[in-house]
Amino acid sequence: MPYKWTSPPEAPAQEMRLWPHQSLPARGFAAFILTTFTLILIPTMTLLGTVLLWGMLPFVLLAVGGVYFALQQNHKSRLIEEVLTLDKDMARLTHTTPKGEVKEWACNRYWATVNKYEKDGPMPQYVTLRGEGREVEIGAFLSEEERVELYDDLQRSLKR
């Protein structure tokens, strides 16, 4: 589950961290690039010692470089983090974008509400927090089932 309460439910302040799935660790990334390079080179082995190899090599390197660049961009876009803090009086949400920008939302916990838009939001099971005249999304990067579970979890936590 890509979210976790970092403090026990009986603590005076609860904190929840949310993050996108990290399905490709650094070792897996290196192995994938090496495997891709090797598999692309297998057909070019028959061209060893010929002038055609030098004609094919730039395209092989371009293909591997394209895969590397795409995976790096994907990794950078997964650097999102959201932290929801619920203390006795306040609810605070801090959203860090992949570029490092920090967006914050805070409101009195008594007035904070959790909303779930099953079909009307930008995605199915869209979860938002509302309070202080603003409505902010939470966990938009989670899967549909995880957003449903997040909604139920937030409902229970805000009622305490």
Rank of each mutant, 00 (worst) to 15 (best):
M1A: 03
P2H: 09
W5K: 00
W5P: 00
T6N: 03
P8C: 01
P8I: 01
P9C: 00
E10R: 02
P12H: 08
Q14Y: 06
E15W: 05
R17C: 00
L18A: 02
W19M: 00
H21A: 07
H21C: 00
S23Y: 03
P25D: 11
P25C: 04
G28I: 10
G28Y: 06
F29P: 00
A31Y: 08
L34Y: 08
T35W: 08
T36G: 11
T36M: 11
T36L: 12
F37C: 09
T38D: 00
L39R: 02
L39W: 11
L39C: 10
L41T: 07
L41E: 05
P43Y: 09
T46R: 07
L47H: 09
G49F: 12
G49Y: 12
T50M: 09
T50I: 08
V51W: 15
W54D: 06
L57F: 14
L57E: 05
P58R: 01
F59C: 06
F59L: 09
L61D: 03
L61Y: 04
A63I: 15
V64L: 11
F69N: 10
A70S: 11
A70I: 09
L71W: 06
Q72K: 12
Q73A: 12
N74K: 10
N74R: 12
N74V: 09
H75G: 06
K76P: 01
S77F: 13
S77G: 05
L79V: 04
L79E: 08
I80F: 14
E82F: 03
V83D: 02
V83M: 03
L86W: 11
L86I: 13
L86F: 10
D87I: 04
K88D: 12
D89C: 04
A91P: 06
A91R: 07
R92P: 01
T94D: 05
T96A: 09
T96E: 08
T97S: 14
P98W: 15
K99C: 08
G100M: 13
E101D: 15
K103W: 15
K103A: 10
E104I: 06
W105A: 06
A106I: 12
C107D: 15
R109T: 10
Y110S: 15
Y110M: 15
Y110P: 10
W111C: 14
W111M: 15
A112R: 11
A112S: 13
T113W: 13
T113A: 15
K116G: 14
K119T: 15
D120F: 13
P122I: 14
P122H: 14
P122K: 13
M123V: 15
P124D: 13
Q125F: 09
Q125K: 13
T128D: 02
T128C: 05
G131L: 11
E132C: 11
E135I: 08
E137S: 11
E137P: 07
I138V: 09
L142V: 03
S143E: 12
E144L: 09
E144Y: 03
E145Q: 10
E145W: 04
E146C: 02
R147C: 04
E149N: 06
E149G: 03
E149C: 04
E149P: 02
E149I: 07
L150W: 04
Y151V: 05
D152V: 03
D153A: 01
L154G: 01
L154K: 01
R156V: 01
R156H: 02
R156L: 02
R156A: 00
R156N: 00
L158N: 01
L158V: 00
R160Q: 00
